[in-house]
């Protein structure tokens, strides 16, 4: 069985990314409401987080080429922006910050996983050449037959989201739940880089270094968040 992706006259990538971000925020709102976080806290946290997510992502991808200014959406930049936004909001509104952070950390894999559907349809971030079962064929500028790494990405991150929801709803110590989620998320993202077309075969590629840097920034932000807000569990 092979998957054939036609050449779209316009890329659905942007629309799917926006919808995935909306879906991720909706999941975070539901988790926060379930945890009893106030409506005002949810509103202002979402506002700060969504602005930081978009602006950080645009800042990371902003560059000038000979064809003009290029703006795109970076998943890693968005993840760092999201955690930064939640951290900033928690410093302003100190209402159940651990529940808020846990909800957003659990929703981030959902956003990323759903956004991979846009990559799958657009053909970007495709896998290495492959002709076995479930090979995906593109007819656009990425023409060729590849391993469907975007679908593997999507499945893996949605599974991590389900695991994360389970952890943050069952564990009282939200900080431990956040640490476990990050400890699963970063290695999975790192490992999936081996399947991407741009991986040069070296043990650690430049893309994987970027993943490690973004993961380290996320961990540092969470530790700073815990330290500043003095969140302790007994």
């Amino acid at each position: 069985m092979q998957i054939d992706i036609p050449a779209f006259s316009w890329s659905p990538y942007g629309l799917i990314v926006v919808l995935s971000v909306i879906a991720g925020f909706a999941a975070a709102v539901l988790l926060m409401r379930r945890a009893g976080v106030g409506k005002q806290t949810i509103f202002y946290t979402c506002l700060t987080a969504i602005v930081c997510t978009f602006i950080t992502s645009l800042m990371v991808t902003f560059r000038i080429t000979e064809r003009g200014i290029v703006l795109s959406f970076s998943g890693l930049g968005a993840a760092v922006g999201l955690i930064s936004g939640v951290l900033i909001a928690a410093l302003i509104i100190r209402d159940k910050p651990d529940e808020v952070m846990a909800a957003f950390i659990a929703s981030a894999p959902l956003m990323y996983g759903l956004a991979k559907l846009g990559c799958f349809l657009a053909g970007c971030c495709h896998g290495k050449p492959y002709s076995g079962p479930f090979a995906v064929t593109y007819h656009n500028e990425h023409a060729g037959t590849y391993f469907p790494v975007q679908l593997v990405d999507m499945a893996a991150f949605i599974l991590i989201h389900i695991l994360a929801v389970f952890l943050i709803t069952k564990m009282k110590n939200k900080f431990s739940a956040i640490c476990i989620i990050l400890a699963v998320l970063i290695p999975v993202r790192f490992a999936l880089e081996y399947l991407k077309y741009y991986h040069d075969g070296s043990p650690v590629s430049s893309g994987q270094i970027t993943v490690l840097i973004a993961g380290a920034i996320a961990v540092i932000l969470v530790l700073v968040w815990k330290k500043i807000l003095k969140i302790n569990y007994r």
Partner: peptide, 20 residues
């Protein structure tokens, strides 16, 4: 671009501080 993005985020943050 980093300065522009940072200032926009700062503008939002200050507005939210004022609101809260």
């Amino acid at each position: 671009s980093a300065l522009v993005g940072g200032s926009v985020i700062g503008a939002w943050v200050l507005m939210i501080i004022a609101r809260v």
